[in-house]
């Protein structure tokens, strides 16, 4: 099972990103564990500067804005 972290201070786009991850995962028929990270310290430690950012299994895949569903699909099925 993949662990997906969504980094963001709780803005609208961060929620949209989380919803998109959920949807893409269910489209692919896989279960993912989604963790939302909104604490600035943890974000800084992960090297996130622009939000929302997404990591899959500890690897940063996206930063700054809503990711594209097609890309998310690739990251989740890789």
């Amino acid at each position: 099972m993949k662990t997906v972290k969504v980094y963001g201070p709780g803005c609208k786009r961060c929620d949209a990103t989380e919803a998109l991850v959920k949807q893409v995962a269910s489209d692919l028929g896989i279960t993912v564990e989604i963790e939302k990270v909104s604490d600035p310290k943890s974000m800084a430690m992960a090297g996130v500067m622009s939000t929302p950012a997404v990591s899959v299994d500890g690897k940063m895949v996206h930063a700054g804005g809503l990711p594209e569903a097609a890309h998310l699909k690739q990251w989740l099925s890789a």
Binding site: Y7, G8, P9, G10, C11, P40, M43, A44, G47, V48, M49, S50, T51, G64
Partner: peptide, 17 residues
């Protein structure tokens, strides 16, 4: 540079660090 005020904290830390 594109940034929204909601991510000014991670951005600030990213710069200073």
């Amino acid at each position: 540079t594109p940034f929204c005020s909601c991510s000014s904290v991670p951005l600030f830390i990213g710069f200073v660090s």
